[in-house]
Amino acid sequence: MRLTELPLRQPAFVDLIDWSVLSPSEGQRLREFGLCEGASVEALHHGGLWGKGPIACKVGRMTIAMRRNHAAAVTVRTGPDAVP
């Protein structure tokens, strides 16, 4: 499922990132934040009154905020056999 669909506070791992959605500098920044295939990720908060705001999620030990269109580029998997 996409990171935008991940229920809040359910640990997951990044399966795939569609880098083509991101500009080179955005991709670079996300990588610097530690968001890459295999990273642990957990959605923490959905911002905005109508659920259209950014998403705050934990990547490794860091909390980052990103917009929904970027979060939608991240495919995650959950469950016991998700651990890479």
Binding site: L22, E26, A65, M66, R67
Partner: peptide, 9 residues
């Protein structure tokens, strides 16, 4: 086009 929003909290 609008830029993004990527930030460390």
């Amino acid at each position: 086009a609008s830029g993004g929003f990527l930030m460390e909290m």
